[in-house]
């Protein structure tokens, strides 16, 4: 057994795990974070994508012990204060999911992609999510959703609700 201390979706955990425990199994089976899914055993499908220390990773390809001391964000922690992340909203608005199985990983990867490239063109989106397989959508609406979220997330983009007067027009 080895000890792992990790923060997941804002909560601190300390657990003894077998060193062979994959991060995704730790999340699902020890922490009950079953929103993160397993779709393959060769690191291809990306369904298990989470953020580790601010970067997207396939949580089947990280040992839980390797995440020791780290911070993990899963699909379950993406919405803040009951408000969906713009990427989640965009997936809904653009019908970017059908069975939903690739969706958690796809959204987490898409969020990461926009962190590196806030305004990707179609090709850049397609290449940015090439590590995430979807069998339902043909990807077209996923690409639309990611580009739409990018526009909404741009600094100064019109938010759903008007910003308070004190900061309106700040634009940063």
């Amino acid at each position: 057994m080895a000890q792992v201390r990790v923060t997941v979706d804002g909560v601190n955990y300390a657990d003894d795990v077998e060193p062979r425990t994959l991060l995704v199994h730790y999340l699902r089976e020890r922490l009950g974070k079953t929103g993160t899914l397993v779709g393959c055993d060769t690191s291809n499908c990306g369904a298990c994508t989470v953020h580790l220390n601010g970067q997207s990773v396939k949580s089947c390809s990280v040992l839980a012990v390797q995440a020791d001391g780290g911070e993990v964000l899963t699909i379950e922690g993406l919405a803040r204060d009951g408000k969906l992340h713009p990427m989640q909203e965009a997936f809904n608005e653009h019908h970017a999911l059908q069975c939903g199985y690739c969706t958690p990983g796809m959204i987490m990867q898409a969020v990461d992609l926009l962190g590196d490239n806030p305004d990707p063109d179609e090709r850049e989106v397609r290449e940015g999510i090439e590590g995430n397989l979807c069998r339902c959508t043909g990807y077209q609406n996923i690409v639309r959703a990611v580009q739409s979220a990018a526009q909404k997330m741009k600094p100064g983009a019109a938010a759903d609700t008007p910003a308070p007067a004190s900061v309106a027009g700040g634009g940063n």
Partner: peptide, 14 residues
């Protein structure tokens, strides 16, 4: 979608 985009899901393995 509301459940599927937030991870509030119940696939059998869960």
């Amino acid at each position: 979608d509301a459940r599927l985009i937030t991870g509030r899901t119940r696939y059998t393995d869960a």
